[in-house]
């Protein structure tokens, strides 16, 4: 932002979320997850463990997989954020959502937005199809699922990789 932080308790930030620019003032301790869910109404991002372990709150910040529970909103000033709500804008990801439905990639669905964003990050960088399945598993081991035993998710990824 450059020099307009007049109030250090309520910094002004500008960021792009799912292609749309926002200029907001937030309390300095607002987590990115709170900004997305409470201020911008993007409730597709879920909060699970809130200690960065479960991966449910995963969003992409300038392409980087990010725990939005461990990130302050003010930290992403100037950045571009992609949440699960923004994935539909990418035609190359259409098959990913379909694969999750058809392969049983979820049951309760709570972890699904984090799973989708984490996988979408690899697809948007065009890395998914060239990675070994071990590398994909390594990339996703921080996204927990308590329903599927990961089999359905694995099948959905295999399908999206093709």
């Amino acid at each position: 932002m450059g020099g307009v932080d007049v109030d250090p308790a309520w910094p002004s930030i500008a960021l792009t979320v799912n292609g749309r620019r926002h200029e907001v003032s937030v309390p300095a301790d607002r987590r990115l997850a709170g900004l997305l869910r409470d201020d911008l109404g993007l409730t597709g991002t879920k909060l699970g463990c809130e200690v960065g372990v479960c991966g449910t709150c995963t969003v992409l910040v300038d392409g980087l997989p990010t725990s939005s529970c461990l990130t302050l909103a003010v930290q992403v000033d100037g950045a571009s954020v992609l949440t699960v709500e923004g994935l539909a804008a990418f035609p190359e990801l259409a098959e990913l959502g379909r694969a999750f439905v058809e392969e049983g990639g979820f049951q309760c669905g709570f972890c699904t937005s984090g799973q989708l964003v984490a996988i979408a990050g690899l697809m948007l960088e065009q890395r998914l199809s060239s990675m070994t399945s071990e590398a994909v598993t390594e990339h996703l081991h921080g996204n927990l699922c308590r329903c599927t035993g990961y089999y359905g998710i694995q099948r959905a990824i295999d399908r999206a990789r093709r």
């Binding site: 990010t66 984490a118 990339h139 081991h141 921080g142």
Partner: peptide, 8 residues
């Protein structure tokens, strides 16, 4: 850790 820890 995991990929998100390594990101930041």
């Amino acid at each position: 850790g995991n990929v998100r820890v390594r990101s930041w």
